[in-house]
C-alpha cells in the first residue's frame, strides 16, 4: 500500500467526524454507535434569586380521593433508568398518536422522518403496564396525568415557588 497512514487517518477521521457533524447540526439525529460525549452547553442566570426549570412530571390520582400525587420516575418506571424518563414522558409513553418527527438542523433545513407506528395492541399493553405501576404506587389505576411544566425554585434552598403547566394531559387507561 502506497499511502497507508493517509488511508488510515482518512478512514478514522471520517468515522469520527461524520457522526460528530450530524450530532452537532441535528442533535436529534445523533447516530449510534458513535464516539461522542455529551456536551450540554446550556447556561443559567446566576444573579437572580429564582431559577426556572423545564421538566416533565407524571402524576397519579390518590386512590379514593380527588387529589394528584407526583410520582417518582425512577420507582415508577423501574427497570427503565431514570434518565430515560423525560423523552418517554414527552412522547406520552406512546399513548398519543405520534406525528412524523421533524428535525430542524442548524442552517434552517427541515427533515421529516416517520416515527415508529404504535399499534392498538401495543397501546393496550402499555396501558396495562402503566396500570400495574399505578397500582403498585397506591394510586387509582384508571388515569395517568403527564404534564410539561416550568417549575420556579428559590435558588438558595430549592423551595418550589411556583409551577406553570404548559401542557397538561390526562390519559384514561381503561
Amino acid at each position: 500500500m502506497k499511502y497507508p497512514n493517509l488511508l488510515y487517518t482518512t478512514v478514522l477521521s471520517a468515522f469520527l467526524l461524520v457522526p460528530f457533524a450530524i450530532g452537532y447540526l441535528a442533535p436529534t439525529l445523533e447516530p449510534y454507535p458513535a464516539v461522542l460525549l455529551p456536551s450540554w452547553a446550556g447556561r443559567i442566570k446566576t444573579t437572580e434569586d429564582q431559577i426556572d426549570f423545564n421538566r416533565t412530571a407524571i402524576y397519579g390520582r390518590v386512590a379514593g380521593r380527588d387529589a394528584w400525587t407526583r410520582l417518582s420516575p425512577s420507582q415508577f418506571l423501574n427497570p427503565v433508568p431514570r434518565e430515560f424518563f423525560p423523552p418517554l414522558a414527552q412522547r406520552y409513553f406512546g399513548l398519543s398518536p405520534i406525528e412524523p418527527i421533524t428535525h430542524t438542523i442548524k442552517g434552517g433545513a427541515v427533515i421529516r422522518i416517520d416515527a415508529h407506528k404504535v399499534s392498538e395492541e401495543e397501546i393496550r399493553n402499555a396501558k396495562q403496564w402503566l396500570r400495574a405501576r399505578l397500582n403498585g404506587s397506591g394510586c387509582d389505576d384508571s388515569v395517568l396525568r403527564i404534564t410539561q411544566e416550568v417549575a420556579t425554585l428559590r435558588r438558595s434552598d430549592g423551595a418550589e415557588i411556583a409551577v406553570r403547566y404548559q401542557n397538561d394531559k390526562v390519559f384514561d387507561l381503561r
Partner: peptide
C-alpha cells in the same frame, strides 16, 4: 434484558442506528 420487559409503545430508536430497522 430489562428492555424485553417494557411496552413496545416506548420504542423510539435513534434514526441513524441499526435498531431503527426493527419494528420494536
Amino acid at each position: 434484558a430489562w428492555v424485553g420487559q417494557v411496552p413496545q409503545s416506548f420504542y423510539n430508536p435513534p434514526v441513524l442506528s441499526v435498531a431503527f430497522l426493527f419494528a420494536g
